[in-house]
């Protein structure tokens, strides 16, 4: 068999011998660089910390995610306990993390810390997954989880409820800043999964009517310390 890779790359190089004119935009001339800094035109992420926190809470509310602001870790533990009681959780999964472990371990129900390898059948039977996150993006109300910081890939998506425990210094203004931080932090190796979660799972597939909890969590809680 001829080498498909070489053949396709050959076709591409051949096709690109004729150049397509660079798009010219009426709004303004953008110089010669490959990309435009689009940040000033995208939705605002907030200049100051308080503006960012306000935007984040506004966006999370619109997304039907629940934000609980608490002053310290002890209050975060209490907040988690309260959700657990209200929702009558029987079994909760979590991962080892300085913010998450103490809160989860104090819960009055069955707790399971996901270890080096995850039993997916067991996770399927859990009412909630409690995780930390990489960052929160005020511009969009997104929470960035990763396979490294949030107990792997499944913990934040399979259980019916997802609770994120985070601190206010994890809030960043926009996606661009968030990506910069991630690349900086994981300079040696990226986590195999990075996922922006923007509200609880949803679908509009039936008559375009919004339903929460299509396959992922029906409810999303953010307990924000600070």
């Amino acid at each position: 068999m001829a080498n498909a890779r070489e053949e396709i790359l050959g076709r591409i190089r051949e096709a690109l011998k004729v150049t397509a004119p660079k798009p010219h935009f009426k709004s303004e001339s953008h110089g010669a660089t490959h990309s435009i800094n689009a940040k000033p035109w995208l939705p605002d992420g907030g200049e100051t910390e308080s503006a960012r926190l306000e935007l984040l809470s506004e966006n999370l509310a619109k997304l039907k995610a629940n934000l609980i602001r608490v002053p310290n870790a002890a209050a975060a533990n209490q907040a988690l306990a309260q959700i657990s009681q209200t929702k009558n959780w029987k079994k909760v999964a979590y991962h080892s993390h300085p913010l998450v472990s103490p809160a989860a371990e104090a819960l009055p129900c069955e707790k399971w810390e996901v270890g080096a390898s995850l039993d997916k059948q067991k996770l399927e039977g859990c009412d909630a997954g409690v995780t930390s996150c990489e960052a929160l993006v005020s511009q969009l109300g997104s929470i960035l989880v990763s396979s490294e910081s949030s107990g792997g890939r499944s913990l934040s998506i399979l259980p019916h409820v997802h609770v994120v425990i985070a601190t206010t210094d994890q809030v960043v203004a926009d996606l661009e800043t968030c990506f910069k931080q991630v690349l900086e932090k994981h300079r040696s190796k990226l986590p195999s999964m990075l996922s922006f979660i923007t509200g609880p799972s949803r679908t509009g597939d039936i008559e375009r009517i919004l339903v929460l909890g299509a396959h992922g969590p029906k409810e999303l809680y953010v307990i924000l310390i600070g």
């Binding site: 109300g141 490294e148 195999s192 999964m193 990075l194």
Partner: peptide, 24 residues
């Protein structure tokens, strides 16, 4: 596409399960 600020899940995958990761 959908009139949303951001789609609910935007996920970046860079490989199979890595050493130290519990699933994938």
């Amino acid at each position: 596409g959908a009139g949303q600020p951001m789609t609910c899940y935007n996920t970046l995958y860079s490989g199979p399960q890595q050493p130290g990761e519990c699933d994938g």
